[in-house]
Structures are given as structure tokens and as C-alpha cells.
Computed example of a mutant assay.
Amino acid sequence: MTHTFVDTNGVRLHVVQAGPIDGPLIILLHGFPEFWYGWRHQIDTLAEAGFWVWAPDQRGYNLSEKPKGIGTYGIDTLAADVVGLIDAAGRQKAVVVGHDWGAAVAWWTAVRYPERIERLVVLNVPHPMAMKQYARQNFGQMLRSWYIGFFQLPWLPETVSRLGNWAMLVQTLRKSSRPGTFTDAELQEYRAAWSQVGAFTAMINWYRAALQQPPSRRSSVRITVPTLIIWGVRDAFLKRKMVQPSLDLCDNGRAVFFENATHWVQHEEAQRVNELIVGEGKRD
């Protein structure tokens, strides 16, 4: 792996790269509260399979630039960051893989810039429109998403999260995953990323912008690129029932379920997830 910084869409992003530079480009988009390190079980395998792997810290996270203001974290801006990375790589297209918030960005990039996406792989987050419609109607999903409302508050989420050396976030990761998924040493890496100056407010601003900076209106939100949804069924945050409505919005989509995996499926079922990503990325 090599660490570099890439200018895109007015920000400088820290990007971990691996694999042959003449291989097909694959961009791995992490979610909350991770950073590039959330793909630690995927990067080497994908590189060995011949992909040129780019795993950025998305804007506001870890070592990437952290622009001030909620308005700089809207989903349209985040999708433009991805296109800027593809441009910086000198490519027309990339396979885009996203988990959690990174999956939301990947979905929206495919909506806005389908000509720049070779294939789409999303892990444990539904299509944004499917999520919006389902969450409005299902009280159980509203309860699971309680933290989104909490994150709208000024300063309090940051203050509470920092207590006890990030005890709340660590407990959330451990309780929502299978035992042993996140080791003590790995959680120290996460704490270091969360502690970067300005990082946690920027991370929370993604959630604030989701409600305060809605995406641009589109004539169609259908996904026209080939799409694979990977879903850990024991997700504590998002219900499986949103997968089919997401597939209904795809021209060419399929889903693979892991019955015993949680929201953190790429950690818990790394080998099988890697096989699926490699197979999807190389399908004709």
C-alpha cells in the first residue's frame, strides 16, 4: 500500500493505493465511523486480483481535508468527489464499492454520473430513495435510525462521543458486530482517526447535511449500471426489507445475503465478500 494525497473537487483527500496502475480502477468508499482502514481486509486481495485500488479517507475523515460548514458535505458534493478521483486517476470509469455512508455516496454517484461507473457494489445500505420511503412508513426503522436525529444537534454529539476515550463509539462498534470483529489494536487506529483535529465534527456534518442539504432533484433516480448489493442480515441499523425496493430501482441488479453477518459484513465475511467484489468487478 502507498499513501498519497489527491486533489479533487476543491479538497485534498488522503488516498491509500495498491495494485498495478494499469489494472482496472476500483474505488472503495468507507462509511461512518470508519476511514480507509475499514477496507483493510479487502485492499491487498483486490490488488492481488489485478485491480488498481484507491481507498480514500472521504472528505472530513482522518487525514483528508475537513472543510468547514454543513453545506460542504451534501451528497451531491460527495458524489462529485468520487468523479474527481476517477479523473485524477486518468480514467473514464471505475468500479465503485461503498459501505454504509460510502454506499450512499456510491448509489448517488451512479444516479448522477452513470457514464463514470463501470459497476456498482454496495454493502448494507439501500438506495437513498428506497431508504427515504421505507423510513417514513416503518416505525421500527425509525427507531433504528434514532441517532440521525441526535446528530442534528449542535456540539452535543461531538461532546458525548468523546467521553471516556470514545467509549460510546467503541461500544456501538462492538455491540453491533460479531464478537471479535474489532480488536483492541484496531480500535486504537479508529480512535486516532476520530481524534484528528476537526474530524469528528466533519463526520457528524455528513448527517446534518443529509437533512439540511438535500440532493439535487433528478428526472430519474434509476440505477442503469450493473449493481451488486451485499447485505449482512443481522444489521442493527438497517432492515433487510429495503433491499428489494432498492433492486426495483436497478436496471440490472442482484443481491447476496449473509444470514449470520451484521452491518460490518466486509469485516466478518471478508473472504467471501472479496470473492464477490472481484467476481463482480471482472464480469463482462
Rank of each mutant, 00 (worst) to 15 (best):
residue 139 F to M: 05
residue 3 H to Q: 09
residue 35 F to M: 05
residue 94 A to R: 12
residue 149 G to A: 09
residue 241 K to R: 01
residue 262 T to L: 09
residue 125 V to M: 10
residue 284 D to Q: 11
residue 147 Y to F: 14
residue 112 R to W: 04
residue 130 A to P: 09
residue 166 W to L: 01
residue 20 P to D: 05
residue 274 N to L: 15
residue 173 L to I: 07
residue 242 M to E: 10
residue 46 L to W: 13
residue 144 R to A: 04
residue 31 G to P: 01
residue 13 L to M: 15
residue 280 E to K: 05
residue 216 S to N: 08
residue 131 M to L: 15
residue 30 H to L: 07
residue 221 V to S: 11
residue 91 R to M: 12
residue 137 Q to M: 15
residue 236 A to V: 01
residue 234 R to S: 04
residue 137 Q to S: 13
residue 279 G to F: 00
residue 158 E to N: 14
residue 112 R to Y: 11
residue 265 V to C: 06
residue 35 F to S: 05
residue 88 A to M: 14
residue 5 F to H: 09
residue 69 G to L: 05
residue 82 V to A: 07
residue 231 W to T: 00
residue 88 A to Q: 14
residue 47 A to Y: 04
residue 169 L to P: 00
residue 17 Q to G: 00
residue 46 L to S: 13
residue 11 V to R: 06
residue 144 R to I: 01
residue 73 Y to H: 05
residue 98 G to E: 03
residue 255 A to G: 09
residue 265 V to T: 10
residue 215 P to M: 03
residue 127 H to W: 10
residue 276 L to Q: 12
residue 113 Y to F: 15
residue 68 K to W: 02
residue 251 D to H: 15
residue 114 P to C: 05
residue 159 T to L: 14
residue 191 R to S: 02
residue 10 G to E: 11
residue 192 A to N: 15
residue 157 P to D: 13
residue 140 G to A: 07
residue 267 H to E: 15
residue 153 L to T: 12
residue 116 R to Q: 11
residue 76 D to L: 13
residue 240 R to A: 07
residue 143 L to P: 00
residue 270 A to K: 13
residue 256 V to K: 11
residue 94 A to F: 09
residue 26 I to K: 00
residue 199 A to M: 04
residue 194 W to H: 06
residue 18 A to V: 00
residue 252 N to P: 01
residue 50 G to R: 06
residue 138 N to V: 14
residue 22 D to R: 05
residue 97 V to H: 11
residue 201 T to M: 01
residue 11 V to C: 01
residue 85 L to D: 09
residue 155 W to E: 10
residue 262 T to V: 08
residue 117 I to D: 07
residue 9 N to C: 08
residue 15 V to G: 00
residue 231 W to S: 01
residue 277 I to A: 02
residue 152 Q to L: 07
residue 187 L to N: 06
residue 161 S to D: 06
residue 110 A to G: 10
residue 143 L to S: 10
residue 191 R to W: 02
residue 69 G to V: 12
residue 39 W to C: 03
residue 229 I to Y: 08
residue 92 Q to E: 15
residue 84 G to I: 12
residue 102 G to H: 10
residue 207 Y to R: 01
residue 190 Y to W: 14
residue 90 G to I: 08
residue 20 P to V: 02
residue 16 V to R: 06
residue 281 G to D: 11
residue 98 G to D: 06
residue 17 Q to C: 08
residue 137 Q to T: 13
residue 28 L to D: 04
residue 239 K to W: 04
residue 133 Q to N: 12
residue 282 K to L: 14
residue 261 A to K: 11
residue 41 H to D: 15
residue 162 R to S: 01
residue 94 A to T: 11
residue 75 I to C: 00
residue 228 L to V: 08
residue 270 A to D: 13
residue 52 W to G: 01
